[in-house]
Design a protein around this nucleic acid. Structure first.
Lengths: 215, 215
DNA sequence: CAGCTTATTTTTGCATACAATATCAAAATA
DNA sequence: TATTTTGATATTGTATGCAAAAATAAGCTG
């Protein structure tokens, strides 16, 4: 009877570095200093290398041969791509959730953005940003689709999406969120999908404008 | 002036192992024997470990702590999930391709499945399976969306989708493929998206039936 | 012989050592 | 002063050694 206590050092190191990235401790573009991690985590290079390689596979870290490892930076084009992916993935997720009739989950989703009404105070804006993030990640969670959830985590694109604050003003997106929630309340999977797709594609369009104006 | 020739051993090893998996040399469920790879590739354990860790991040390989590394097996539920993901991703890909008017790409896509007419000979079936695979991977390629392409490769779900042959008979899917191609010819992004979504969701449904009948 | 215990071999996970390359700073040249 | 050249330091990529755990084989008990 094996497997009494299987605590692998690499796994802890992996989680540690990943949390540093997600927590902003290691910001995008930051070079990974292995020796610093050796001291900070109190382990040798081996488990650190294993963790970093895994994070390269998960697109958290980018390798530049012989130059070092860097926390992945998402440029404007990639941010647009991220929003297209979100549109496709969250769209099909909400559609299937409604079509398969997961009642509890849908009732929870139907309750989002309830207390929000314009105009927003500063505090409202903060709460709204939180609600936004929570709403979209909950959709992926309720998809009960492991592959989708892994993709979500791998790229951590939700986190990245919000790292520079909201793409568009609440004045613009609140109505869209209400449309999505209403479609959910009506149990109209097709409409909910289309609403969420348009929601993300609009954000993608705004990012595109920002891109081209930068160059 | 650095970077004259930056050939990293780990990268070659990574590609080698990945190709072994994709080529069926290392079938799903197979245990990865590191020492065998040491001999076969003529390198030490270090680059092999780096490559394996990266492949764990890319979901090609699964780690079972202290027991070893195994080529990822996709069970029936995960295969269903894969088809939901394909529906969402390829759907938005074709929609954006049409909306953004990439003419050359669309003309290429419009030419798929042209010579195929029922009934099929044995040779037709083989050619059709190839065409199918090629069609769907081309859509992802033409999305010009790096994130989506990476996700595609990471999970190699296209390859997995076909590893047990076609899910459904050509008699059923040829018409669907023609519908998708027709929507592309009409430059109707919304319809093309919906057609491809339904196409994949039907396959997902068939997989679900197979699942429940197995248990 | 079946089932358990013990011994042997293999493999995993980690640490360390070392050579090749890159980075950085000081000295030398124009 | 601006630009090379040179040398010292740090970091990367790889190989190797070693202890703990697991898989496997051999011996023992009933």
């Amino acid at each position: 009877m094996p497997k009494i206590e299987n605590t692998i050092l690499s796994d802890h190191v992996y989680e540690g570095i990943r949390d540093m990235i997600l927590g902003g401790d290691l910001p995008p573009g930051q070079k990974i200093n292995k020796n610093e991690l050796v001291e900070r985590l109190g382990v040798s290079l081996t488990p650190i290398n294993a963790a970093i390689s895994r994070l390269v596979g998960e697109k958290f870290i980018e390798q530049q041969s012989r130059y070092g490892f860097f926390v992945k930076v998402f440029d404007c084009k990639e941010m647009q791509d991220l929003y297209a992916v979100r549109a496709g993935l969250e769209g099909i997720a909400i559609r299937l959730c409604i079509e398969n009739g997961c009642e509890e989950e849908l009732q929870h989703l139907a309750g989002f953005f309830e207390g929000f009404r314009l105009p927003f105070s500063e505090d409202d804006k903060k709460r709204y940003a939180q609600e936004d993030k929570h709403f979209h990640s909950t959709i992926v969670k309720y998809s009960a689709n492991r592959i989708m959830q892994d993709m979500n985590m791998s790229y951590a694109y939700i986190i990245r999406s919000y790292q520079k604050g909201l793409i568009r003003a609440p004045e613009e997106t609140l109505e869209e969120h209400h449309s999505i929630v209403n479609a959910i309340k009506d149990r109209d999977g097709f409409l909910a999908q289309e609403m969420i797709i348009q929601h993300h594609l609009k954000s993608k369009e705004v990012l595109k404008q920002q891109c081209t104006s930068e160059d």
